[in-house]
Nucleic acid binder design. Structure first.
Lengths: 332, 332
DNA sequence: CTGTTAGCGCATTCAG
DNA sequence: CTGAATGCGCTAACAG
């Protein structure tokens, strides 16, 4: 009743030939007679033979598996990126792990990847990540790592990223063009490079536009809903109140607007919001941000996967690559 | 520079002991002298030794890997379920594959799972799935399969599901209680058992409430946005127009309302909507359904994973289990 | 307390 | 054209 997976050994026995003959036949090695080859293939088909990947791993030195660590699958940005990764990495097993924005989980995921000998890793770092030893360890074993979107700051590494600081400037410009002056930044965790870039772009644009720069207008959330809303309370209690808020991403902007409303203010009327990501679901939101920077999740995943593929396949060391994907400001 | 992963063989050589001594020492086998054990552990630590899973797979007869196939990662219902699965299956590698509601992808995923010798599979079937040979094949090799949420109709199998037909009745009751009479059903693909159940509950409630049952008020979408909106056009062109629509799930309901609005009608005013899933993002939607049946994604994933764990661990055959998880009507 | 050996499934080198 | 033998990394039965 309960079949067990066939092996070349069984095939060999049943056919009265040697294991190596079967092995070669299955690889269509021309050294094996056509007749024999056909018999082997036929029996293999009947027995539903499938090579045991574990055995192959032992021989060849790769697993045809790559690991992906990212904060949350439920964020459409990331699930879209994964779809792209799958599309590019056909023939590979891609195993996904959520860090849930916790450093410990991220480390755990990488430990598992290392233990299971993945051929490469694609990563978007957690909100808590402030060192990269766990990533460097993989590289020290020759396992290439490609970061995308949330890439480590100042760490030489393979990266696929978008020009966040330029995008942040565009967002400020967008608001300034509409006559808004007191613009706040509700940023992500400071150690994330992508937060730093937002701040940099924001500051630069504010300066260029000769808008008032108030340090208390800039704060960073750990990306949780609770902390985000606490920061909104803080921001909206400033005097004078900011007229607009640049949010870390669409989710943060949603949380922030919810809180704004709870405080008796009308989002995008009393306080304007703009953000990053431009998730499709924003189309259905009660209060979408006025504008959002599309980061093209699919393209980023695609580029990251393509780069990883190169790294895996290239025999010699490749210097760290830094790929940029364009962003696009979209107005809602 | 580029380390390669250490093996027990290397450790043995360096320490001048035999391979099996190292193997046993690493397993803390008391037969090995404490002194030796410590030396082995110490060197293993230094060399960052990690057992090669491929070698283990060849010996033991399991991979400590389980596969999950489901339609779309980007649907929060599924990504939440996955989080639960990960939480339960600590120590397992869980590899995820999206069918994208295509039968061929689903088959491909299962073929990969079979080839890679996963210890078990958790599945939520695609919209196109109308036979289950690919699942049965896994079972014929002794690989247990647990279906959740979108479970196959009339196929004896391990299932974790919610009582959809009862929930559908509650939804109709909810509408009827508000004096609505012409209630339509915008269902999913007919071959999905979950569609059938919705229809059954709908019909039964309509009958009990003595509401008019009009076959043209019932239609099924392939779950794509385009087809869904075409079906909305159809439904809203009926005479008389339905007063309310029970949608297959929250996404369908969102698509439907968008279309309704495009047709010049006001959702939840000219036509009322209710649906299934109760996704968290509905909280932020411009037009959330009036009511949605919460299906407790996390619990479903959890139950499915727990059941699978039992099946994997149990030495003897376990008869097909059917687990139910409660639903809850939530009013927005 | 420790070493030797066989074998998991497969590719491959070396013989014939 | 085909077979025997070896080894990938590891565990476990068997020997001492």
């Amino acid at each position: 009743m309960q079949k067990s997976q066939a092996t070349i050994k069984q095939i060999a026995q049943e056919l009265g030939v040697s294991i190596s003959t079967v092995s070669r036949a299955l690889q269509n090695n021309p050294r094996i007679g056509l007749r024999t080859r056909e018999r082997v293939w036929e029996l293999a088909r009947q027995l539903q033979y499938r090579p045991n990947p574990a055995a192959l791993v032992l021989k060849k030195k790769h697993t045809r598996t790559i690991g992906v660590v990212l904060p949350f699958l439920k964020e459409e940005f990331f699930s879209t990126a994964i779809t792209a990764i799958e599309d590019v990495l056909t023939g590979y097993n891609v195993v996904i792990s959520q860090s849930r924005d916790e450093l410990e989980r991220e480390k755990g995921a990488l430990a598992t990847f290392l233990a299971s000998r993945v051929d490469g890793v694609i990563a978007s770092i957690s909100a808590e990540t402030h060192h990269y030893l766990h990533f460097k360890e993989l590289e020290s074993f020759g396992i290439p790592v490609v970061f995308f979107d949330r890439v480590p700051r100042r760490l030489p590494a393979h990266k696929v990223r978008s020009n966040i600081s330029t995008a942040a400037r565009e967002l400020v410009d967008f608001l300034a063009d509409r006559g808004l002056e007191r613009i706040a930044l509700l940023n992500g965790p400071a150690q994330l490079e992508v937060s730093e870039e937002r701040q940099q772009g924001y500051l630069q644009a504010m300066k260029e536009r000769h808008l008032p720069i108030d340090p208390s207008y800039v704060c960073s959330s750990d990306l949780s809903k609770a902390d985000t809303q606490a920061k909104v309370d803080y921001l909206l209690s400033r005097e004078p109140k900011p007229q607009a808020i640049v949010a870390f991403n669409d989710y943060i902007s949603l949380y922030a607007m919810e809180r704004t409303q709870a405080l008796g203010l009308i989002p995008n009327q009393d306080v304007y919001f703009v953000s990053f990501a431009n998730l499709p679901m924003m189309e259905y939101a009660a209060h979408p941000p006025l504008a959002s920077v599309d980061q093209f999740a699919y393209t980023m995943g695609e580029k990251a996967a393509e780069l990883l593929l190169q790294l895996i396949q290239s025999p010699e060391e490749i210097p760290y690559q830094e790929l940029w994907v364009e962003t696009q400001l979209v107005i809602h």
